[in-house]
């Protein structure tokens, strides 16, 4: 079972944070097909958020085909995140680690790294490759 957390200062809307956390858990393998997601009440009881927000996030995940709601039982994981497999994930992570070491050697600090990464990500999004 996944436990949600909330970053209240992030500016990212609550339901998106929930969606991201489920996807992240799928990527990392902490959530697997057949696993049950916590009920709206359980999420609400731990995070003190509006239950509609939880349902909205689950509906979004359902729309993307990642989970399915079974009436009277709950919401269950249908499949893992499409795209990168776990192996590929590891390979990319290694490459990124190497790049970070490289950048550090070039004198960039934590903040420079983040800014650079954000810019590249934004540009890529504009070109439609992200």
């Amino acid at each position: 079972m996944i436990e949600f957390t909330l970053d209240r200062g992030s500016g990212v809307s609550t339901y998106l944070q929930l969606v991201h956390q489920v996807k992240q858990a799928l990527r990392l393998g902490t959530l697997r097909p057949g696993d049950q997601l916590p009920t709206a009440r359980q999420v609400v009881e731990s995070l003190a958020i509006n239950p509609n927000t939880v349902l909205k996030a689950y509906r979004e995940l359902e729309r993307e085909g990642l989970v399915e709601g079974r009436p009277g039982m709950g919401t269950f994981v249908r499949q893992g995140v499409a795209g990168a497999t776990l192996a590929e994930h590891t390979r990319l992570r290694r490459a990124l680690e190497a790049w970070v070491r490289d950048a550090r050697a070039a004198g960039l600090d934590q903040e420079d790294l983040r800014a650079l990464f954000a810019v590249v990500l934004a540009d890529a999004a504009k070109e439609g490759v992200a």
């Binding site: 709206a40 009440r41 609400v44 009881e45 003190a48 509006n50 239950p51």
Partner: peptide, 14 residues
């Protein structure tokens, strides 16, 4: 505050 809100939200979910 968090605890009170949790109680209320849980009831709304119910």
């Amino acid at each position: 505050r968090h605890d009170v809100m949790r109680s209320i939200m849980a009831e709304v979910a119910e």
